[in-house]
Design a protein around this nucleic acid. Structure first.
Length: 426
RNA sequence: GGAAGAGUGGCAGAGCUGGUUUAAUGCACCGGUCUUGAAAACCGGCGUACGUUAACGCGUACCGGGGGUUCGAAUCCCUCCUCUUCCGCCA
């Protein structure tokens, strides 16, 4: 979330950002509301502190009086402190209420988009940052969609997935599951080579973690919940990995922190329907390798570029046609300042499928995380957080199957052969 | 899951028969004196957040989290979490 001080000192800037996200003028009134509530909070804080101070002083005196045997006066003071306590309790609850109100408002204010973010209402308005220049692959008339190929070569059993769990939980088998494993290892090795430390985080997280990355309260409906234990199944490795840095103060020399993790991702995808959810296009459980960086504020945009290059390299090595989009104000994630999406062309469906999203959150996440660093003078500042998928597996598999299909079977991308141990799926 | 014990500032470690402890002391760290330089010794500093102030400061809260008793709680009570040990179960 944004800092109240930031909203106070840069109201116009924040407002411009909200308007880029297609907020109306009226809706932006929330900024003034936050400032007004914060003014109120400060006043309450001041009076509460002074009452507490007086109570502390008087309690000290009572102690001295008891020692000197001055019981009567002590009793008088006790009554007085008793009255102060009433006031104090009242102020305390007012303070709590004010803080909650402010936080509630802050949760409703998204990040300020970077100046590079194009104006726009929906995904239609996203800017093609880098297009696929060569001709797109064209398949013959008999071309099959990936779910047909998966059945033909016995790679994925969607029906068994339904039997065991439900729709959207594919069961990979045979060479399908080997392809899955090969991709995971390939992506992790590439991330390691690029200097990311590999971690295996918990796949369930507690309320504090889910809140710190902003999945709670706003996206509660998108997560699976293990209610009995108050745990959430992770929708992305971003949640556990970023939370490594919750309540952490780094030294400047610790930058950049680079972490990668493979995890399954669980998403309820409530409200999705139609051809979007066919086959592997949108599933409740999929595997993803995530890259996360924590950076100095001055470096984060350079680092985001570096992350883009990394993801781009993966797609080139897999020989998949791709394009990069710069998300417009209307499509930009709530918490992000600048996001690039990677889409891979799935030739049989003749569709672009999103396989990665690389975002710079600036201080929006770190403020909730309380992730800071000490500068050379020992002053504390919020760090910048970034993350990206490198990559999401299900749709990559869909694209590989469709694009590489031939009469003889499906050609395995050369870079995966050492991982998988064969050239053809047939 | 059951039983017992423990959770204190970067670390170690007092305090825990409630009130000059708003946390001793040591180590680490930073600055200074001394020294050709360093070490040692000595002197000083050394947490986080919020409020207040032009500033120096001052105030408040924080001794695992939350709640309670009391004029006053690190210290007593309740509850939750975590760790250690023992038992049970188990890949």
């Amino acid at each position: 979330m944004l800092r109240t001080e930031f909203i106070r000192n840069h109201t116009e800037l924040v407002k411009k950002g909200l308007i880029k996200r297609n907020w109306t003028e009226e809706r932006c009134g929330i900024l003034q509301e936050v400032i007004a509530l914060d003014d109120q909070r400060k006043k309450i804080q001041t009076s509460s502190d002074s009452v507490l101070h007086e109570m502390n002083v008087l309690s000290g005196k009572i102690g001295e009086m008891y020692k000197s045997g001055n019981r009567e006066e002590a009793e008088t003071l006790k009554t007085k402190v008793g009255q102060l306590k009433e006031t104090s309790k009242d102020l305390e609850s007012q303070l709590k209420e004010a803080k909650e109100k402010i936080e509630q408002k802050l949760f409703a204010i998204p990040n300020v988009p970077n100046s590079l973010v194009p104006a726009g209402k929906s995904e239609e308005d996203n800017e093609v940052y880098k297009d696929w220049e060569s001709p797109l692959p064209k398949l013959g008339d008999g071309a099959m969609a990936h779910w047909e190929l998966a059945e033909k070569y016995n790679l994925i059993d969607f029906k068994l997935g339904v039997k065991i769990a439900g729709s959207g939980f594919p069961l990979f088998r045979n060479k399908g599951s080997k392809l899955q494993r090969a991709l995971i290892n390939f992506f992790l090795d590439e991330a390691s080579a690029a200097g990311y430390e590999e971690v295996v985080p918990p796949h369930l997280v507690n309320t504090a973690s889910a809140t710190a990355t902003g999945n709670l309260p706003d996206k509660e409906g998108q997560m699976y919940v293990a209610e009995r234990d108050e745990l959430y199944l992770i929708p992305t490795a971003e949640v556990p990995v970023t939370n490594i840095f919750r309540d952490v103060i780094l030294n400047e020399s610790d930058f950049p922190q680079k972490l990668t993790a493979y995890t399954p991702c669980f998403r309820r995808e409530a409200g999705s329907y139609g051809s979007d959810v066919k086959g592997l296009n949108r599933v409740h459980q999929f595997d993803k390798i995530e890259i996360v960086q924590i950076s100095h504020p001055d470096e984060s945009y350079k680092i985001q570029q570096e992350m883009l290059d990394h993801v781009e390299g993966l797609l080139q090595k897999l020989e998949l046609p791709y394009r990069i989009l710069r998300l417009c104000g209307g499509d930009l994630t709530f918490t992000s300042a600048l996001t690039y999406d990677f889409e891979v062309y799935s030739a049989a469906q003749k569709k672009w499928l999103e396989v990665s999203s690389v975002s710079n959150f600036e201080t929006y996440q770190s403020n909730r995380l309380k992730l800071r660093y000490k500068d050379s003078e020992g002053k504390k500042h919020l760090a910048h957080t970034l993350n990206g998928s490198a990559l999401a597996l299900a749709r990559i598999i869909a694209a590989i199957l469709e694009n590489n299909q031939t009469e003889q079977g499906i050609k395995v991308p050369a870079v995966l052969v050492p991982y998988i141990g064969f050239d053809w799926i047939n």
